[in-house]
């Protein structure tokens, strides 16, 4: 179980981007972290995975705990060894490596005998990757690269898999496909998933619960059902009006209505 308690993150010792974020990811759950650009979603993930340090950021207050153990002072390597793995935003494959080599890099820290077996498992989830196993990853299509990045995270046999916008720049059908695979992986392997997403509808379709972030704070949280029926979430993140119909431009005021959360 992952627990964030009043986490504050500061970049370069002056720019505070998270102002006390608290959230928890129960074992085996899929938790969605929603919000507009610049809300601090990716920063939250990097604070957990320890990648913050590379970007000159640090957790200045609060605590991050994994199964009761503090991890906010640990580096990326130590956090990775605890089975927390992050798939970065924007399909960061190793371009000059083959598909299968990319997957094997994901299993770098493992020394058990089931790596081959898990490779087959990933190929079962993503049959397309198996066909492309000897291809150079840089030449795969966007959807295939996203599959590869998720598959690479799966190869670490994680306890917690953090995905940063897996739907970014993909066709709707591809998004559906990838999300159904994430759901299936979560059900089969009991791996917890922390999901950062702009595509609120698809994220809430598989999540058990979610958090809405704005300006470095959590402004709303609850179960996926609660969130997807919340009027504000509907209006501001799904573009639906109170009636559940598509909003018409005729009703849009000439000034921009903006929800103040706090």
């Amino acid at each position: 179980m992952l627990k964030l308690n009043n986490v504050e993150v500061t970049y370069l010792n002056v720019i505070r981007v998270l102002h006390g974020v608290s959230l928890s990811v129960p074992d085996g759950a899929i938790v969605a972290l929603l919000g507009a650009n610049g809300a601090g979603k990716s920063t939250t993930l990097k604070a957990i995975s320890g990648l913050l340090r590379i970007e000159e950021g640090q957790v200045t207050d609060g605590s991050i705990e994994w199964d009761g153990e503090r991890i906010d002072k640990k580096g990326a390597e130590a956090v990775g060894k605890m089975g927390i793995v992050q798939a970065l935003e924007g399909r960061r494959v190793f371009e000059h490596l083959q598909t299968e080599e990319n997957l094997m890099v994901g299993a770098f820290n493992r020394h058990d005998n089931y790596i081959k077996q898990d490779l087959e498992m990933v190929y079962e989830y993503f049959p397309r990757l198996k066909a492309l196993r000897r291809n150079i990853a840089g030449y795969l299509s966007g959807g295939e690269q996203q599959m590869l990045v998720i598959g690479r995270a799966m190869m670490a046999k994680p306890n917690l898999m953090m995905l940063d916008e897996p739907s970014l720049g993909l066709a709707p059908l591809m998004v559906e496909e990838i999300y159904s695979i994430i759901k299936r992986f979560n059900t089969d392997q009991k791996t917890s998933v922390l999901l950062v997403e702009q595509n609120v509808r698809v994220a809430l379709s598989i999540a058990t619960n979610g958090y809405v972030m704005e300006n470095g704070r959590v402004v709303l949280d609850g179960t996926a059902d609660f969130l997807s029926n919340n009027e504000d979430v509907k209006e501001f993140y799904m573009g639906l009006s109170a009636m559940g119909t598509k909003k018409s431009y005729r009703e849009v005021k000439h000034y921009k209505r903006r929800k103040r959360w706090l």
Binding site: I54, V79, G80, R92, V93, F94, L97, V105, N109
Partner: peptide, 23 residues
Amino acid sequence: HRLGVAMRASADDQMAVQACGIP
């Protein structure tokens, strides 16, 4: 070798390599 492959990977993307837990 896994370290050799990791070395090639880190030439491509140092941040992603660290996200995979590779020092």
